[in-house]
Structures are given as structure tokens and as C-alpha cells.
Design a binder for these strands. Sequence first.
RNA 1: GUCCCUAUCGUCUAGAGGCCUAGGACAAUACCCUUUCACGGUAUGAACCGGGGUUCGAAUCCCCGUGGGGACGCCA
Length: 463
Amino acid sequence: MTVRTRFAPSPTGYLHIGGARTALFAWAYARRHGGTFILRIEDTDVARSTPAAVQAILDGMQWLGLAHDEGPFYQMQRMPRYKEVIAQMLAAGTAYHCYTSPEDLDAMRQEQMARHEKPRYDGRWRPEAGKALPVPPAGVAPVVRFRNPIDGVVAWDDGVKGRIEIANTELDDFIIARADGTPTYNFCVVVDDWDMKITHVIRGDDHVNNTPRQINVLAALGAQVPEYAHLSMILGDDGTKLSKRHGAVSVMQYDEDGYLPEAVLNYLARLGWSHGDDEVFSMEQFVQWFDLDHITSSAAQFNTEKLNWLNAHYIKSAATVRLAADVARRLARRGVDPEAGPPLEKVIALYQDRAANLNEMADACEPFCVAVHPSAEMIATHLTDAARAALKVLRDKLATCAWEKPAIGAAMKETLAACGMKMPQVAIPLRVALLGQPQSPAIDAVLEVLGRDEVLRRLDRSY
RNA sequence: GUCCCUAUCGUCUAGAGGCCUAGGACAAUACCCUUUCACGGUAUGAACCGGGGUUCGAAUCCCCGUGGGGACGCCA
């Protein structure tokens, strides 16, 4: 049996971080077992589904590098198939028409809640041997309900939660087709998983309660029941349910915020899954190691600080050319010409083990490309008369010395000796004059990269 | 309300009855490195939700509480 997994988002918004992890795990499981990963778009909620959201999901998947082998399949394009199955079930007696109005249903639920009962459809239109059904009201289009077993339990061995058993008395005859004939979610999922020969359903644990219903329908259809693995949810940084106010919930927002996809992937893989003490690993390793046994069954809180650490790690080890290409785009978007300064790769090499994200990297590169204007306050505190005098001495040495770190360092030291100053007393004003800020990587390296002409030009402007 | 899931440092987690004086990572703190700020290095503090069982022995198994989450739609 070849493994077939699927990721089945509904296109009602962007791909958020929880969905991304679900996709990652389903993808990894298929890859691990040489199987097939299928993308299915569950767009039967016509009112809320949008093409833009479909595109956003596709973009997010692509950014993460989670390639699907089949699909995307769109449920809206499978309507004839769903209707066919519904007709079959109606004919077989495993489904029936129900004429109860939404208002009556609502009233029924209210009463049940008032009686401290779980709200369930009471089966008034359910055909039963020897039972007289009400007369269908005229002019009312019925919904189609699934004829759920009355007794017994539905059980399955969940890949992450272990054995789960739910009594059929907890379930009711749920609607599989609306009055307008369109099928509902729980039904479409069943037909799709069946038709697409899904062997492992890996999804969020908000679906645990849907699983027994789906298993029952599968059984009524005579279909094979797949394995299920329910992933617990990801909570926000503050321990509450993930929502818009948590900031970067969309996967593409992480791109925007300067994260590398491999950092996000590594972080997500480690959130709710573990392989001993391993923290940093490639997707190749992840695919090799991934298993359902080491998935955590409780909800996990998102921790941006750890993601930041991973991101910094991946920036340190990334190829400089690649970072340069990305940072060039970011600078251009800010209206900064990335070509205006020294070769970007050289600047990036200076900052590669200091930047936690690509936007910080762009911040660091910017002053190399544009003229800097330190604030009046910065000038007042750092470019004192004594500092200016020292910089003038230094300037003349820099004008003639060899342009490489040792010689530049020597020029600095000579200046210190000539002026009777300590290194920071000169280096800090120099940083302010050159880059507009009192901190930078090693000053000789900065000078070397900035270039003699530009260094002299900036020094001349500042005293 | 009913049903389902869940519970180890602040956070992510290791842990499958003795290997646990509970390990790793992020974060925190201290020190070292240093030409500033970072990076890096070293060290320190920090947890088995509570109560009952089972057992020679429980973080690990069972039960009951409590906390957290989810579901109960002609949404997905």
C-alpha cells in the first residue's frame, strides 16, 4: 500500500501558521514513506471562499517548498460526483430527506441545552420500520441527512492521540446535503478521501469530533477507513488561540518580516514533534526522521524568540549571494538603490552573524548605499571638538595608507597615539560619521568595505 | 450544559515502571572574548498540576478532582 496524504484547506483566508504545520506534517509523512501528497481546496462555502485566498495558500505552500504531487483538486468541481453518491445513499436507505426548518431545529437545540443535554437532531424524519413519518410540507425543499447508527461505538486508533471511542448515541443524523442540493463539508471530505484513496488523514484536532461521523459514512459506503492522526493546535505567543491580533499569523507575513523559509520550517517541525534533542535540522533530515509516534498530543504555544534564534542561525549559514539577492529586493522596495554602495555581498558578510532577520540586514546595509544624516543629538554627543580633531588626523592617514584592514588598523592606532586617546574615543565618532550610528562591526572591516573614496567623502562632510 | 482531547522548567520538549539527584533547546542571569554593539564560549537558576490507588519501586499505569483546549451549524 502506498501512502497517500492530503492537505485540505478551505480558501477563506491566507495560509496561517497552524495550517502550514499541518501541511508540513502531511507532506513529510508522504515523503517519508515514498508516498503521494495531495492538495485539495475545500471551497464549498461559496460565500466565504475567494480565488485570492486560493492563491494565497498556493503562494504560502510554494514559499515553504511544500510541493504537492496531485491536485489542487477543487471540491466545487466535484459536485456531480457528490450528488451521485447522495443519490446512491438515498436509494440505499443510508440517507433520507428531512423537512425540519432551521427555525424548528434552533428551537429544538435551545430546549435540549435547557435540559442540559447535548443538542442533537431528534430523528423526526428518520425512516424506521413500522414508524409513520410526518407528511412532507408543501413547497419545502428538504435537506438530506445521513442515517447514523443508533447504538454501538465508533472507535479508531489515532496516530497521535491513541485509541478514541465515541458512542453513536453522541452522534446525530447530520445533514449531508443542504436544501439547495449542495453537499456539506463532512460529506465531501468522506467522498474525497475515498475517491482519492487517502491512506492517512493528518489534520488539526478540531476534527476529532468529525471523525466518528466520517467513519460512519465511510462504513455506510462500504469504503475502507483511512488512518487518522490529529494534530493539536498551535497557540499564540501569549497562550491564547491564534488570531489576527497575534501579528504574523500568515505564512507570507514571515517572508515579509524577514524570516527564511527554512527557519520557519525547522521551527514548525519542532513545534509539537521531536527527535530526541535535535533542534536544528534540514528538511532532508526531517523527512528521514519524521514519525507519528513523536508528535505531542497537547497544544503548543508559539514562541517567536525561538523562531528568531533559528532564523539568525540560518542567516549565518546561508550563502551570501542568496542573502544579497533578497536584501537587494528589500532595499529596492524602500527606494534605496542596492547598487549605490559597495558590493552588497561584502556588506552582508559584515553583518551575517549579527542580523536576526532579513529586514535587520537591510537596515544594516542601507547606510552603505545612501548618505547618512546622524541626528543632531548624535552629533552633539559623539562628534565633539576633540573627536573631530582626531578624525581629521585619521583622515589624512587614511588618504594615503594601503587599503586593507592591517594598514587601516595601524592608521587608527597611530591616530590614538598622536591624540592621546583610547580606541572607543575615536572609533565611536568614526562610526557616527560614517554610518550614522555608534555601533557597527569591527571598524577596520567597515572601512575596508566602504572604500577609501567613500570614507574620505563622508569624513570630509563631518568636520 | 453535554461529549471529546489534554497536563514535565517562563516557552518548545526528552522521558514507553528502576538508566531521573528529571536531560536538551529558546529565553533569563553571571562571567569570558572584544575596538563599540552583536556573534561566540563557559557557568548558574528554573519543571514532573493536586489527591488517591497499583507496584518492592511511578514523571511514566489506573481512578477522581482541577486547569487548559476543542466540538456540539443547511461553516469548513
